[in-house]
Simulated assay, not measured.
Amino acid sequence: MAGEITMVLDDYVKQVQEIRQSFLKLTPVVEKCDQILTTINAYQQQRLPQVELTELELSTDLIFDNLIEYPQLMDVSPQFENLRQVMIENFGIWHICNQLWINDLQAFCGLDSYNLEIMAGNAVISANLKNTIATDNLDWQGQDNDRPCPWTALEKLDAVTAVQKYYSHVDNIIMAWAPDSGEVDWQVLHFLRQNYFQGNLIVIGERNGATNSTKFWQNAQLQLVDQLNQHHRPFDFINDQVWLVK
């Protein structure tokens, strides 16, 4: 299995490198290739990329202005937008972030705060955020990736149990890319409301879309914070954003 997954990654990297070579005169294409390759290279080393992914889909104007010289340009965007699936299958990472965003998150939370990440997956955020407890029950194994490889120590707890255990000891609770199946996210929010949690519940997800349950979005009081979204912008067809939730 490991060899097969590595081959998928190698194939994708090779595709992007070939696209870059084929469109050296088109700076926007080269820039997007470089962002993708830099991101993959960083995650291979369990580091966060220092660059932000911008929208990977090529603009209509760029395509049609260059279609005669580059008829194959129509096929580029779909290949670029395979990035998230490649990251899921190879690294077990659904939420792709960068160091600039982590810096913003750290500034928002504060250097002296204590944080809890629930449903942390491979705990990429926790590994890069000071004083953060990472928790996950790892029930996502087998969902495109069956090789958990946490970047830091991970306490095996489901989200509700983790919140019940730690909510009174932390200033911030972080929930990134909760699944859209089940209503665990709503159970977490309901518990925090019942117990008058005074800290921040920071949620990264697509409202009424690919992440979180319908009941969660229907009941959540949402606030977008500019500081947490300036280096966290959608790069593919999923419009995930960073929310404060009450």
Rank of each mutant, 00 (worst) to 15 (best):
D61G: 08
I36Y: 06
L116D: 03
M74C: 00
R84E: 00
C97E: 00
V8A: 08
G92Q: 01
F64W: 05
Q85E: 06
D10E: 08
I118S: 00
I40S: 15
M87W: 10
G3D: 13
Q21G: 12
N66S: 02
I96R: 04
M74G: 10
Q35M: 06
Y114L: 08
F108H: 03
E57L: 05
N66R: 04
A42K: 15
I19W: 02
Y114H: 07
V76F: 05
M7Q: 10
T6C: 07
I133E: 09
L73K: 01
S77F: 06
N41F: 09
N41I: 10
C97R: 03
K14T: 02
M119L: 11
D10H: 12
M74L: 12
I102V: 13
G3S: 07
Q15R: 10
G121T: 03
V86S: 01
M7E: 13
E57A: 10
K130F: 15
Q17V: 07
E81L: 02
I36D: 02
K130Q: 11
I133H: 11
D34H: 11
Q17N: 10
W101K: 00
A42M: 10
A127L: 07
I36N: 00
E89K: 13
V86R: 15
V30N: 08
I19H: 07
P28L: 15
S113L: 13
Q50P: 03
E31T: 14
R47S: 08
S77M: 06
T54L: 14
H95L: 02
Y43R: 12
F80P: 05
Y12S: 03
I19R: 11
Y12T: 14
G121N: 02
L56R: 10
